[in-house]
Design a protein around this nucleic acid. Structure first.
Lengths: 247, 247
DNA sequence: CAAACTTAGCGTACAATTTACGTTAAGTTA
DNA sequence: TAACTTAACGTAAATTGTACGCTAAGTTTG
């Protein structure tokens, strides 16, 4: 942060839709806008974490930089999903003024590359140990965001919904040890649909990379569930790519 | 084409991976590079169709413009699939020189938004009626392309392979009337795998949007196949989104 | 301390789909 | 006319999905 303006490419940015799961809701990490150097006179509106790109910086590198600055985490699940480059996307007057003020450069059209990211809410240091004014918002109760950021979240969510169906990325959102029910709840909130727990469990436990631990839940007001963990190596080994297709 | 340099944003471009199916092979439309105004001194290497973006132009609009100029077609299947923005992607000396020569502007890093497109080879006017030096190349026998264009094709192909599994986009590559065998062959070349024709047919004909015509093949040295056509409306109507997922 | 409550976790019957084939049909070519 | 080739229909077995019933193991309540 706080690099001289000349280091930035005024046409290119990255924005990150950072998803987290608090056990009940899917949430998105938003920050309160403020000026890069000044603290910002137009602070107040929420936006996605993002930044202009350094002149010699890789796009994914820029996204990683934004994530690291915000959460303190280095190895986060991160995937590019779209580009937003409509010439009018930054023409809202207030938004545009903020852009030029915070970057210190005159700016015309900004094309932003959007990434989505999955993190375990408990592991990130957001809201406690940094001063970015970051906060987690329920994905279905988002405030109005700057620019086209609501649209970006929407498309990021659609992408997540799609990709989680065939890739074991749910574990990126869950703690290292988890119960079957936690996975099911996660799927239910992402799909917006209740699933039968008996059939869900049956389907899930066929996967050999979800390994039972010797530990149970404690202090819950019902039969305690067994904890499981995800074994990435076993996933890669046992992965059989059968060719599904449908008309 | 031939617009003054100042109309272009020197940081942004689009590139199109245009797929076509000739009945036996999946092919990609490539053009021989030449200078924008001069005819080009460094012509010779193949590249994807693409261009810098006009200052006030939408990304998708730019892709459509490139496609229209090349093929003469307006309503083509077109889908954004990735951005390539590595700062080194245009640093190859020869490539970079061509870029600056053909655009007439000094250029540092170009971020390109990649689209893939599906067209019916017979319908496009390429190779015959234009002077773009465009030609169809088998997707598995591509020459070395400029910049990172081989990589772009690779990712575009991976995207097609993935998306064709659950969306009826194969019809974009086939003529208006087609046989079941043609669809199967298309799937086989895209997946790189032979499929059982009896089971393929069974699965396919469950879809009510593939409607039989009253016409058969003629002049083939075997039992002539019935022609079918694709009914987009019926697809939309009968589309039931069951929630598939897998671990 | 027993009954009520809640979620975990196993099982079962039936339906639907996939997989692996056999077989006949309808043309052209030799 | 026989051989050849792909179209098109069919069938049996295996696998997977769907819709449930039921018991287990804790905590909370009265």
């Amino acid at each position: 942060m706080n690099s001289p303006p000349a280091n930035f490419n005024p046409h290119l940015s990255v924005d990150c839709v950072i998803f987290g799961f608090d056990g009940d809701n899917l949430r998105v990490l938003l920050i309160k806008r403020k000026g890069r150097n000044t603290g910002g006179t137009k602070a107040g509106k929420y936006k996605l974490p993002g930044d202009l790109i350094h002149l010699k910086e890789d796009l994914e590198g820029a996204a990683k930089r934004v994530l690291a600055e915000l959460t303190g985490l280095e190895n986060i699940f991160l995937r590019q999903f779209s580009v937003f480059g409509n010439p009018n996307r930054t023409t809202n007057e207030e938004d545009h003024a903020w852009l030029e003020e915070s970057s210190g450069i005159p700016i015309s059209r900004v094309v932003t590359t959007a990434y989505y990211s999955l993190i375990r809410i408990d592991k990130s240091k957001t809201e406690n140990e940094n001063n970015h004014h970051a906060s987690w918002h329920k994905v279905d109760e988002l405030p109005n965001l700057v620019f086209d950021h609501n649209q970006i979240v929407e498309k990021g969510l659609a992408t997540l919904r799609n990709e989680i169906r065939f890739e074991p990325i749910c574990f990126e959102l869950l703690p290292g040890k988890f119960t079957i029910r936690q996975i099911q709840t996660l799927y239910e909130v992402i799909f917006g649909k209740e699933l039968d727990n008996r059939n869900f469990r049956k389907k899930l436990l066929k996967a050999k990379y979800i390994v039972p631990l010797n530990e149970k839940q404690k202090g819950v007001a019902h039969k305690p569930a067994l904890y499981y963990s995800y074994n990435r190596n076993k996933y890669v080994e046992t992965r059989e790519d059968v060719l599904y297709y449908n008309f």
